[in-house]
Simulated scan of single mutants.
Amino acid sequence: MTKPDPARRSETSRRAVLTAAFDLLQEMPYPQLSIERIAARAGVGKQTIYRWWPSKAAVLLDAFLLLSESAEGAPPELPDTGDLDADLRLVLRATVAELNDPRLEQPMRALATEVAHDAALADAYHERLDGPLKEAKRQRLRSAQDAGQLAEHLDLDLAVDLIWGPVLNRWLQRSGPLTDEYVDRLVATALGGMRP
């Protein structure tokens, strides 16, 4: 008879906790979510959760990281077909689809709120989730810059904010519909000011 593998058991429990947190947010508002409810849904003890995460917001961040993990664990990459307009429209349309997904909306809004109020969580969010995504966006714009499609001295950090910021701002403030047509206008307007 083989002995149980504690690492496998821990990974199974970790995934159960992350899935439970996400599933519970489909059933209740974020303020009602608690470590106790997550533990009960995941079939683990509260102490197991507190051993791995300091708060329900930290659990939620890891749930998003689990969703965004690639099969190979490779850092994120944006498509680079050589057509910057098409690549950005593709990525921004996928972003809009995620923001409009009813299953993701409540957890994403909860995480955005917690990040705004918790400096330690904000640091973890930027280091583990937002930072790698921003680097992928910079790399794609740098490739376009190297190909002469963007101005040579363009500030790529600012360009990332100018391209992706309006989508997130519109979503956070519920200030207008997020549609493919909006994405197309946004890309055309942003790139119009960034070309050589």
Rank of each mutant, 00 (worst) to 15 (best):
L67W: 04
S68V: 09
W52P: 05
A57F: 03
E72Y: 03
W52C: 09
P54E: 11
A57D: 15
L65A: 08
D87Y: 07
A39M: 10
K56L: 04
A116M: 05
L84G: 08
L90P: 01
R103Q: 15
D62Y: 02
L78T: 02
P75Y: 06
L61E: 04
V44R: 02
V115T: 00
A74V: 06
P75T: 09
R103C: 12
E77L: 11
D85C: 01
L111H: 01
R51T: 14
T95W: 04
A110W: 02
E98V: 13
L104R: 13
S55N: 07
A39E: 10
T48W: 15
W52M: 09
L66H: 14
R103I: 10
R51A: 14
S70E: 14
E36Q: 11
D85K: 13
P102F: 05
V96C: 06
R51F: 15
A58R: 14
L66M: 14
W52I: 00
R41Q: 14
D62Q: 12
A71K: 07
E114F: 01
R51W: 14
Q47W: 12
G82D: 01
A112M: 10
R41V: 01
A74R: 09
D83A: 12
P102R: 10
D101V: 07
R89E: 15
L104H: 11
A110L: 04
L84E: 05
P54M: 06
E98A: 12
F64H: 12
A116I: 00
R37W: 04
I38K: 01
L88F: 07
A119Y: 02
L92W: 03
A97R: 12
E36M: 10
A116T: 04
L99H: 02
L90V: 00
A86C: 02
V96R: 03
A97Q: 13
E36N: 12
A57G: 14
P79T: 06
L60Q: 05
R89Y: 02
H117W: 08
A63Q: 06
Y50I: 11
R103M: 13
R89S: 05
T113V: 03
A58Y: 13
L60I: 05
V44I: 05
L65P: 04
G82V: 03
G45Q: 09
V44Q: 03
S68I: 05
P54I: 00
R89T: 10
L61A: 01
V96P: 06
P107E: 02
A97E: 15
R103V: 15
A86E: 13
A71Y: 09
F64L: 00
E69T: 10
F64N: 01
L78W: 15
P79E: 04
N100R: 08
R89A: 05
L90Q: 13
A74G: 08
V44E: 00
I49V: 11
T113Y: 03
